[in-house]
Design a binder for these strands. Structure first.
Lengths: 329, 329
DNA sequence: GATGAGGATGTAACCGATTGCAACAACCGA
DNA sequence: TCGGTTGTTGCAATCGGTTACATCCTCATC
């Protein structure tokens, strides 16, 4: 390549990268040679020397969860704007696997890491092993005890919206269904649920907190369990839409009408929530905003290593649909 | 690191990578020093020198399409077995973006590329620019005119299953709904549809081929359009489950019963197909098998550059659910 | 005890870019 | 014409591993 343009490799580098001074004439010559040869440089060598790869790593608990795919798409969109590419990993909800992914990203010298930690406490070990030289931002979920930035939504506020709406619709009792509370999202949402159940005077028995997994199957299991009770609560509040899907399936099979016999709310507003019958009242997360802020944080100069780690919570939005819309009677 | 174990960098390399001979005593010493220091090597430098990175790139048209996320998960599972990591990219159905992703993967010197090309003909330019030194395998969709391997399913066979079943259920007329046929999946499925409609003596008018996009919205649009006709066909055959979702939504809103007024079939068997009401009769793709075969092909020594490019098609499976199960009348 | 085989380890070139420094050319004013 | 300034370009070190080759050591054999 260098000889094709009859210059040194140094000049090629300066001409193509735009750093340093190169005369217009040689620049043109180099550019022509490059396009003739289809030369694009070797990003491995570049990364080795310059210490940054133009790649941002992202780790999510499960890419089959539509909420995370939506989040990933938003992130990708943002990264495209700043000319970086995304390296996506799936931790499959497994702390050990998550740790391996983290290490592999770090070894690849990515320019930054976005992570939604799969465990509210155990994920911290791996996260703290990342040298402070690689910027890390937690997205959506977070882990206790790590000094990294976080971007997410105000889960308490979300529960205020959900229970406020349920109360308006006449709910006097509620159950809460989510994943195990080792997960920060569930933890925060449960806290908000309990707080605002009290505020809106909605009854919650100790048995009415059902924690399992973020999955359709868990929703079905809970649905079946609830159907065995003689009395249903007024509203079932779910920590994720996928759980609500399972409950709908169980109730539909049993011929129990939602919202007439019991109201139901989800969380995340994944695409399918508006398609399923009944469509689900849910909390929408502003994934575009989350992604934009997270990417912005990543590229912030971490030079001033002292800066307090930021926690940015965006406001959630309640989307009201059929599952809580009781027809006037 | 080398001095911590009191050996040369060469010995460190040999000890940790397992190549070359090292005495047990020094190997132990090096390993201890490495774990004490948390040393893992620099994969960039390694990749630069050794020409392979342990990374496999994958490009899919859309990660928000649950079929592709299922495929990605299967691939990731397979790669884990052979100790490689996945670098996932989304082409967003855009040929130009796809070309950029391809180039960026190639520059990163990935060990191989798995791609589901977003366009049946236009994707070929970018694909052919990949040097033959990087193994490329097409997965699911494919592009005309490229000499790369392909792994997918037998779409014709799938349509035989679908129409055979519909015929058994008494269908005498059908419409076909899918994406634009610039897409190889649609192309092959449409061909199969036409062929077996004839075989099973099912009527298909020229207007009954509705091609748009692989999306819920397109399904809704088609649903609305079909509802304006005085007579509905006996069965609506969709090229993807997501399209079927849209049709269900439109028909449910209009109070038209599936399967009683019209039968409906999907394609892919994504998770929600079994959750939605009515659950959808669909064609399951054996993603595990596809992924395993694709990964196997990637690691096949491409030394014999002459080998004919393989096209491996797996047998699809028909999953019968409510959307074609007419209650005895 | 000398010789040779073979295992263990070190030396140094190399992968392909980036970049500090030096060299060099062109042009200016004195 | 000469010293100085500015702008362009090349040289060579560097990033952190891998690996061909050389060297050294040990042990067996004659």
């Amino acid at each position: 390549m260098a000889q094709a343009a009859a210059v040194s490799t140094a000049t090629v580098s300066r001409a193509l990268s735009g750093t340093g001074r190169v005369s217009d004439r040689t620049r043109k010559r180099v550019e022509k040679a490059a396009s003739d040869l289809g030369y694009t440089g070797n990003s491995i060598a570049r990364a080795l020397r310059s210490k940054h790869s133009g790649i941002v790593g992202m780790i999510v608990p499960s890419i089959s969860n539509p909420f995370f795919t939506a989040l990933v798409e938003s992130v990708e969109h943002e990264l495209q704007r700043v000319g970086k590419t995304l390296f996506l990993c799936d931790s499959q909800g497994d702390v050990a696997l998550e740790a391996r992914r983290l290490r592999s990203l770090q070894e690849s010298h990515v320019d930054g890491i976005l992570i939604s930690p799969c465990h509210g406490t155990d994920s911290v070990t791996a996260l703290n092993q990342i040298p402070t030289s690689t910027p890390v931002v937690q997205l959506d979920q977070f882990v206790m005890g790590s000094a990294t930035d976080w971007v997410g939504i105000d889960d308490e506020k979300a529960m205020e919206l959900v229970l406020g709406h349920a109360s308006e619709q006449g709910a006097k009792s509620a159950v809460f269904v989510s994943s195990a509370s080792t997960n920060s999202s569930t933890h925060a949402r449960l806290a908000g649920f309990l707080k605002y159940a009290k505020v809106f005077d909605i009854q919650v028995a100790p048995d009415d907190i059902l924690l399992g997994r973020f999955s359709v199957e868990w929703g079905e299991e809970v649905g079946a369990r609830l159907l065995q009770h003689p009395a249903l609560p007024d509203v079932i509040v779910c920590g994720a839409d996928v759980i609500a899907f399972g409950i709908i399936r169980a109730f539909t099979a049993a011929g129990v009408s939602i919202p007439d016999r019991v109201m139901l709310t989800g969380f995340d507003d994944v695409a399918f929530s508006s398609i399923i019958t009944p469509s689900i009242t849910t909390v929408r997360q502003p994934t575009q905003l989350l992604a934009a802020e997270a990417v912005r944080m990543l590229s912030q100069t971490p030079a001033d290593g002292l800066k307090a780690h930021a926690k940015v919570a965006f406001a959630p939005q309640l989307i009201i649909r059929e599952s809580t819309s009781r027809t006037a009677r």
